[in-house]
């Protein structure tokens, strides 16, 4: 008995093979599409902005004249912002992660807490901006200073830091802490001397990556109301400030009025991307250098 009609199968075979070949090419090309756009984007920004970058541009003050404009104020503002966001998110992010991973019992409240964090991660950044404007800038009357922006950004990236720290803590093998308990150590001693030091590279990597997201964010700071005026360099966390993305935003908007502003925006983008590159490279370095591999 013949179950398979060979002729019929053979007839369709070459068609199926051709479709398979073509579709594999399409899949490859669509992967390339994203990368090609990335290439065009980077090429455009660098070719437009690179020749505008020099020492005067980096160290200069903002100016309405494109030739004299500099972004030192925005660079300092970005650094001060990081000086607020980094410790605040590390404290609350790692604290929450320790609680959830090592202390929290499996009950309804803690499950709800985790769901809440997952939902917060999906809230648009501009909503955090409104929260920051209402609470920090107006209700607590900080004004639009570094501290208000920093707290807002901290809340924004907190869910990401919590989740990445949780993953880092979860990756610490059980037998390390069991050995510690076996030696008579208490829970907190084990957490502080065994779990945290082992998880630290992973925690740092996640924290740096989320911090690099924070310094590229614009929307919350626009809502908080960072002025487009020429303000003096910020000297601390209680000063008014501007950051690199804000400067890109204003210059891009005004590029329809003054053509050179587009070049200034591109040059500022190059500066921002270089900062992000340095941070990401640091994160990757930490991950590859300090993270030990354990066999669970």
């Amino acid at each position: 008995m013949q179950l398979v009609d060979h002729q019929k199968v053979n007839k369709r075979m070459s068609f199926r093979i051709i479709v398979n070949r073509i579709s594999s090419i399409i899949f490859f090309l669509s992967t390339m599409l994203g990368l090609v756009v990335l290439g065009i984007l980077l090429y455009r920004v660098f070719s437009q902005g690179f020749e505008w970058i020099n020492m005067d541009f980096i160290t200069g003050k903002l100016s309405t004249q494109p030739e004299r404009a500099g972004i030192m104020g925005a660079i300092l503002g970005t650094l001060w912002l990081m000086a607020v966001v980094a410790p605040v998110t590390m404290f609350f992010g790692v604290g929450t992660a320790i609680y959830l991973e090592l202390y929290a019992k499996k009950n309804r409240f803690n499950g709800w807490l985790e769901t809440n964090i997952a939902n917060l991660a999906g809230v648009p950044s501009i909503v955090y901006g409104i929260l920051g404007m209402t609470i920090f800038v107006r209700a607590l009357d900080f004004g639009n200073i570094v501290l208000a922006g920093g707290f807002t950004m901290s809340l924004l990236i907190l869910p990401i830091v919590i989740v990445s720290s949780q993953e880092a803590i979860r990756a610490v093998p059980k037998h390390l802490s069991e050995a510690s308990y076996g030696m008579g150590a208490t829970k907190w001693q084990t957490v502080r001397r065994i779990v945290l030091p082992t998880a630290l590279p992973g925690i740092m990597t996640g924290a740096i990556l989320s911090l690099s997201r924070a310094i590229g964010e614009t929307a919350p700071l626009v809502v908080i109301g960072i002025p487009a005026l020429l303000i003096p360099f910020p000297g601390g966390i209680f000063d008014k400030f501007t950051v690199l993305p804000m400067q890109i935003y204003y210059w891009t908007l005004d590029s329809s009025l003054v053509d050179e502003y587009a070049n200034l925006a591109a040059a500022t983008i190059v500066t921002l991307l270089v900062m992000l590159l340095i941070m990401n490279a640091t994160a990757i370095l930490i991950r590859s250098k300090f993270q030990k591999q354990y066999d669970n």
Binding site: G34, L35, V37, L38, L41, V45, S212, R213, G216, E217, T218, A219, P245, I248, Y249, T252, A265, A266, I269, L272, L273, L276, N280
Partner: peptide
């Protein structure tokens, strides 16, 4: 591509 700030995409 995912790590590029959205303001850069806006530009």
């Amino acid at each position: 591509l995912a790590g590029i700030p959205t303001i850069v995409y806006g530009f």
